[in-house]
Design a protein around this nucleic acid. Structure first.
Length: 791
DNA sequence: AGCACGCCGACT
DNA sequence: GTCGGCGTGCTC
């Protein structure tokens, strides 16, 4: 028997199958999906079996045997192997890179070099070696002097270097005890010991923590062990990221007629075992989650598993809580803030069938279930579903492929669907289900637009309009809460010299520096560059520096000073630490802080009953970005954030401050009219020949040397031009909107096409060529298929 | 990715 | 003549 193996080396040259002999003693252990250990050239590496076959046409003398199998169960299912190949082809990626994205990082192998004595080492070699260690020396602990001493023996092969491999993450254990199941009992006077012994015999091994929780001291444990009734053992424990939190029982709710209709349609697809994609278009607060929950219950009843996708799990603790309280321990939670170990534990729960639902962000789309019964993507329009580093996959497409494979429904839910998904529901590729009303009595607030142009004309230069100011004061006096959104972090956007107009720029990127008050420094938001706040202009030397543009830090200060109230600020700078989101949100809710101020991360999913006012301080920040989805993102953001108001008994109010009051994205957001926005946006997309009328590929060429970038970009343009039909459109090469980031010049080419059957072959050839080119000229090519951002 | 192989310039 | 630069090719 032979195995086709993908080796764990991310390089274009080895991105293919290698054939290994399966030794007889491993035949029943090696299956497609097994993680194995093989000799490759001069070293030992990890690999993944993708196929097991009876024969090969390779020269038998070239074939080496598989050394080891790493796991009892294969880590990949047949479906995931197939999926990984398909993804590698589509996104122009190396097969191993996709496999590594599918598996938890803990399964990657970490190796270290150690030195050992060879059997025929001389006495002097042995003596030198023993100065460091008796058995083996870790190379990374040696300094140059140590190496100098050992080098002669390494050269004479008396001391040999070996690679040692260890799994990235150890299974986590806790100290605990297990009963020895003796026939005799502790003395009748030792009441506590008898009780605890009974407990341990009844429930199996217990950890010290568990025992202490039950009210027995360490003394009792030690007594049982000392008297021989129990023995100390290490107990495997799962790392529970939600440890110590209480979940309230969540009751199943009665569906509204609209929800019931949506549920019935989806149930039919489940019952018929057919794949269908549903677009669940429901206004904010229309109860999409309840539909998801009941669909999942249906799937579980059939003995199948459910994958629940959310945009950013740290932002949706309320959703996780609802799932945990409805389904309890059947839920595995996967997201980027987990440690490698925690993530590995959740992955094992899924792979070994101990979890039946997995809820998580983007990478959760790879949940290793054997029988997927439905995949749900909440807020399907969110751009976080597209990974913006390699591999550049979009979770929605991956979900579609997996749902097709399992003949199960894919449910895309959103109040503001992506233009692409809505367009597919218009032509019947997706089945659209509408939820137009809220199950509670709450009405959807109608936003008001305040023109900041007019505000300036009337002499108000503040970032807060007179109307918003009035409403803020009103809420504070009534002890109600509000959410204010400003999509710009930092203190001031940039610094300008009033004398000569000089603006301090990042030395590594073509972008102005942002002032951060907390550390009184200028920072670049594109690289880690930071410099102290200057006291005079770097160009003319005058002391006439002025801060322009307002970020969340400054607003926070203004709000505190003007209204004399507490403010909770939420942006990347305040939420960098684990658990910070939840902490800030619960402070806001429990301490009834009047104002929650934040960037776009506060627009999604929050549900606070006492919030009666939502203010968008500048609705134009995204609108002005040079990206064809800027209108769509503005509309989505405004609609989403409006939905945060009026979730309780009191009706909510929403204010949009803008310099573009006539823009259709803002107008339709105000009117809460998704469909009109969609139709208007489609006209623009058609005219400008953008998605969904065309597919896109974004090529970004970057290098430290400007001339090399220009040369490479023009070469790439020529190659693509030659290979695509004349129905496709090539834009560029042109400098990227931010031409230089981290000292690298960037040029881009955008390909728009409708149908190019040969395209992917060309893309792989280009990728191939430029991965070699990179070694020669430090010029790299990034190919982003279906880009989410064209900037 | 790493490593051997091999082909040209600067030395003992 | 030989040491060593790094371009090229190969790994089942």
């Amino acid at each position: 028997m032979y195995a086709s193996v993908i080796v764990a080396i991310s390089n274009k040259n080895v991105d293919r199958l290698f054939t290994y002999k399966i030794p007889e003693h491993l035949e029943d252990k090696i299956q497609p999906g097994s993680r194995v250990f093989v000799s490759f050239g001069p070293r030992m590496i990890q690999g993944f079996v993708v196929e097991v076959k009876n024969d090969t046409d390779l020269d038998p003398s070239k074939i080496k045997p598989i050394q080891k199998v790493m796991d009892v169960y294969p880590v990949l299912t047949k479906e995931l192997i197939h999926l990984s190949k398909k993804l590698a082809d589509y996104y122009v990626e190396r097969h191993i890179k996709v496999i590594e994205a599918i598996l938890p990082a803990a399964l990657k192998m970490k190796s270290r070099s150690v030195l050992k004595l060879s059997d025929d080492a001389s006495t002097i070699a042995r003596e030198t070696f023993k100065k460091f260690d008796d058995e083996k020396i870790d190379v990374k602990l040696l300094d140059m002097n140590d190496l100098k001493q050992l080098m002669p023996f390494i050269n004479s092969k008396e001391i040999i270097e070996e690679k040692e491999f260890s799994q990235h993450t150890k299974k986590k254990t806790r100290r605990g005890i297990e009963s020895n199941y003796l026939d005799i009992k502790p003395s009748s006077r030792a009441v506590k010991q008898i009780e605890l012994l009974e407990l341990v015999e009844e429930s199996g091994p217990l950890t010290y923590e568990q025992i202490e929780e039950e009210g027995y001291s360490i003394g009792v444990i030690n007594a049982l062990v000392d008297n021989g009734f129990c023995k100390k053992i290490d107990i495997l424990v799962e790392r529970d990221p939600y440890e110590g939190r209480v979940f309230y029982q969540d009751e199943k709710k009665i569906l509204t007629p609209e929800q019931q209709h949506a549920f019935d349609k989806i149930k039919k697809s489940i019952d018929d075992d057919t794949h269908e994609t549903f677009l669940l278009h429901g206004i904010t607060g229309s109860g999409k989650t309840e539909v998801y929950l009941q669909v999942i219950e249906e799937v579980l009843n059939r003995g199948e598993n459910a994958i629940m996708m959310v945009p950013e799990i740290a932002l949706t603790p309320q959703m996780v809580q609802r799932f945990k309280s409805r389904f309890g321990d059947d839920v595995a939670v996967i997201h980027s803030m987990l440690s490698h170990g925690e993530r590995y534990d959740e992955w094992r729960k899924i792979r070994e069938g101990r979890a039946r639902i997995s809820i998580g962000a983007r990478s959760n789309v790879f949940a290793a279930f054997q029988n997927v019964g439905c995949i749900i993507i909440d807020e399907e329009h969110e751009s976080t579903y597209k990974q913006n580093e390699r591999p550049y996959y979009h979770a929605r497409l991956v979900a579609k492929w997996r749902a097709e494979y399992y003949n199960c429904p894919l449910i895309l839910g959103s109040a503001t669907p992506s233009i692409e998904s809505y367009a597919r529901s218009e032509v019947g590729v997706y089945q659209r289900l509408e939820l137009t009303e809220r199950p509670t009595e709450q009405t959807v607030p109608t936003p008001e637009i305040v023109s900041m142009v007019k505000e300036r004309e009337d002499g108000n230069t503040s970032i807060i309009s007179r109307k918003l100011d009035m409403k803020i004061r009103d809420r504070i006096s009534k002890d109600e809460q509000m959410i204010l959104l400003l999509n710009r972090r930092g203190y001031a956007n940039f610094l300008v010299c009033q004398n000569c107009g000089h603006v301090p720029m990042c030395p590594n990127c073509d972008i102005s520096l942002t002032y951060h008050k907390s550390n009184n420094s200028l920072m670049c938001h594109y690289c880690a560059y930071e410099e102290p706040m200057p006291t005079k202009c770097g160009a003319c030397g005058e002391h006439d520096l002025s801060l322009r543009g307002t970020g969340t830090q400054k607003i926070e200060e203004i709000l505190r000073d003007t209204y004399n109230v507490d403010v909770v600020r939420m942006d990347i700078d305040t939420t960098r630490n684990k658990g910070a989101h939840e902490k800030l949100l619960s402070t806001f809710e429990k301490e009834n802080i009047p104002i929650l101020l934040g960037t776009q991360m506060i627009a999604k999913g929050l549900d606070f009953k006492n919030v009666t006012l939502v203010g968008v301080l500048n609705a134009d920040t995204i609108l002005n970005l040079p990206d064809f989805r800027a209108n769509e993102r503005t509309f989505q953001l405004l609609t989403q954030v409006s939905g945060r108001a009026g979730r309780g008994d009191v009706e909510g109010e929403v204010i949009f401050q803008t310099y573009n009051e006539d823009h259709y994205a803002i107008q339709f957001a105000k009117e809460n009219d998704y469909r009109s926005f969609y139709l208007r946006e489609m006209e623009y997309r058609k005219l400008a020949r953008y998605s969904p009328y065309y597919f896109h590929v974004l090529f970004t060429i970057s290098s430290e040397y400007q001339d090399r970038v220009i040369k490479a970009a023009s070469d790439i343009h020529t190659v693509i031009q030659k290979d695509v039909s004349n129905r496709s459109i090539l834009i560029g090469p042109s400098p990227s909107p931010i031409e230089r980031i981290q000292n690298k010049y960037r040029f881009q080419i955008i390909l728009k096409y409708k149908s190019e059957p040969e395209l992917f072959k060309v893309l792989h050839e280009l990728d191939n060529k430029y991965s070699k080119e990179y070694q020669k000229t430090q010029t790299s090519l990034r190919i982003d298929v279906d880009p989410e951002y064209i900037m």
